[in-house]
């Protein structure tokens, strides 16, 4: 068994004194796909935000690649990225949006990586690179947001309902791109979705959550992954 890329120990989160998350232990194996499901407000997004270091848990420890992390002192982690439920693009061109993470990391081969990421999400680089943020449809914006994360080949990619509010064609492209990230870069995926059929088809493990807790964890083998 490979070393876990992410481990959570005794994680608890509270909002306004109310418990919203209680995870005694969770481990994500490198290169695995984990599906997260559950009703709205059950803590899925909070769990992703803690893994992505957007917020610190009230109690508990998060280990990324075996190292303890602290979102309060150093928000974000360069190996981990999260695609938000409602994607946000900077008021810049598609190219600049996709290249932002590469520039933040001082990575080389910027143009090649941007083009590669755009192709992965099904957008023709030459046609889209110079487009402005307001010249994109909702589906295209979501794909550009995903490309911005794929460009730096993250070790852990967290997707928060990536296909919600998308048409079927865009949703299929997003799904394919996410899976390509694992096959090409060995990226570990955590996917939050209400699409149980898809989750069971691609995930190695599907976790069901209710009221902030894990109520069921099932290994599925990821038939189509």
């Amino acid at each position: 068994m490979s070393q876990p890329i992410c481990e959570l120990f005794e994680i608890r989160q509270q909002y306004c004194g109310r418990d919203v998350l209680d995870i005694p232990y969770l481990s994500l194996e490198q290169g695995s796909i984990t599906g997260l499901s559950g009703p709205n407000g059950c803590g899925k997004s909070t769990l992703l935000r803690i893994m992505a270091q957007l917020e610190s848990p009230a109690i508990g420890t998060v280990l990324l690649n075996g190292e303890r992390t602290d979102a309060a002192s150093t928000p974000g982690h360069r190996d981990v990225t999260l695609l938000l439920q409602e994607p946000f693009l900077l008021k810049q061109s598609v190219y600049s949006n996709v290249a932002f993470g590469l520039r933040a990391r001082g990575m080389e081969d910027e143009k090649e990586r941007v083009y590669e990421a755009l192709r992965l999400v099904g957008l023709a680089p030459v046609a889209f690179c110079h487009r402005k943020w307001y010249e994109l449809s909702g589906g295209e914006a979501q794909r550009v947001a995903l490309a911005a994360r794929l460009a730096f080949r993250p070790a852990l990619l967290l997707l928060d309902e990536p296909t919600a509010s998308l048409d079927e064609a865009s949703a299929a492209t997003i799904r394919e791109a996410a899976l390509s990230a694992r096959s090409r870069f060995g990226t570990t995926l955590v996917i939050v979705s209400h699409d149980m059929k898809w989750l069971h088809a691609v995930s190695d493990t599907v976790i069901c959550m209710e009221r902030g807790s894990i109520v069921k964890q099932k290994t599925t083998q990821g038939e189509n992954a």
Binding site: R49, A52, Q53, L54, P75, G76, R78, V80, T81, L82, L83, L84, E86, P87, F88, L90, K91, Q92, F100, G101, A104, R105, A148, R149, F152
Partner: peptide
């Protein structure tokens, strides 16, 4: 936009890069 900060963090921006990006936005 409330999504700007989490977006910048998840793209790996440092504090200085976040400040610059916010001014640009």
């Amino acid at each position: 936009d409330r999504r700007l900060k989490p977006t910048l963090i998840t793209l790996g921006a440092s504090k200085r890069q976040m400040l610059t990006a916010t001014i640009l936005e």
